[in-house]
């Protein structure tokens, strides 16, 4: 797990058009600069919001990333719920302590 670098990449993608351009045009070179597992790399490339949430990515980073990749609000909220159903509870970070109040 290298949650820090997953979050760092999302932070930079969210705020910096130049990083987004590199992500589009030379993705492998960009991703090589971050210490990512294959699962983490795939989750980012696939825009797998549910898995990224389960990995423990801070929600504010993830919300902006979901908007960046064009996910509608309900789709984004449901993706987190489906992620937990598919992959199990959040693995790391603040949300490991989160009690489900959504039902």
């Amino acid at each position: 797990m290298s949650l820090y670098y997953v979050q760092k990449l999302l932070y930079q993608l969210n705020r910096d058009p130049a990083i987004r351009k590199r992500f589009e045009e030379s993705r492998d070179d960009l991703l090589a600069e971050y210490q990512l597992t294959d699962e983490e790399r795939d989750a980012i490339v696939d825009g797998d919001i549910g898995l990224l949430y389960v990995m423990g990515v801070n929600g504010q980073l993830l919300m902006h990333y979901a908007a960046l990749i064009g996910q509608e609000w309900d789709q984004y909220i449901n993706a987190m719920k489906e992620g937990v159903e598919k992959h199990g509870p959040v693995r790391e970070g603040l949300y490991t302590l989160l009690e489900d109040r959504s039902r």
């Binding site: 949430y53 929600g59 919300m63 909220i77 987190m80 937990v84 989160l98 109040r101 959504s102």
Partner: peptide, 10 residues
């Protein structure tokens, strides 16, 4: 509030 989590809206 629980923004940007499955509890969003609570």
């Amino acid at each position: 509030h629980w923004p940007a989590t499955p509890n969003s809206g609570v």
